[in-house]
Amino acid sequence: MRVVIAEDSVLLREGIARLLQDAGHEVVGQAGDAEDLVRKVLAHRPDIAIVDVRMPPTNTDDGLRAALELRERAPDVAVLVLSQYVEEGYAHELIGGGAAGVGYLLKDRVADVERFVDSVARVGEGGSALDPEVVAQLLGRRRRDDPLEGLTPREREVLGLMAEGRSNSAIAEELVVTERAVEKHVTSIFGKLDLPPAAQDHRRVLAVLRYLGARG
């Protein structure tokens, strides 16, 4: 997989490049600010761009804005956004019209190398990766007449992993159950929340996210 990395901290940028190269990916470009990122992505057309939110020139959310720009100008390039903070609002902005090829993770997740590499691969292949903390925010929000109260604890767990963008097999592995059992839970959840069933994982993320976001 061809990767462009945008991160203003050289140490972290080199670290990420190294662990992706170790995993067999090709780092075709490294950028230190938002403008450099856009230029390099448009030039290299990588499979995925890994983007830090806070970058020069303004050191606010330049990376996020550049990522949104890339979604417009190069929809075939997947984007994985990394940040010191994750905010539900940013997740909605990023995913917007579609969750395919979008990832949004806390920077800390790079420490769990195996899972991080996994997420990069999944997003690069057109899947989704939403940080567990964002999902926790979505699920943890208190609502009046909370429909999530109708779910069993196991179903909530499955819903959370679905929102993260995991496939049924990954969920089964995480929960140490059969894939068949996961399928049953998913059907039950969609039934209880009155959601139209979605075949692809990233469509599922969008449906869940829209559902939870709209119920704020």
Partner: peptide
């Protein structure tokens, strides 16, 4: 850091920051 000054307030302003605050509150 969030307690000192939340990044989303600087980045996006009051409404998104308050939305984030509301979503973290333990009541609707």
């Amino acid at each position: 850091a969030r307690g000192i000054h939340p990044a989303i307030l600087t980045d996006r302003g009051l409404r998104p920051a308050l939305e984030a605050l509301a979503s973290r509150a333990p009541l609707p």
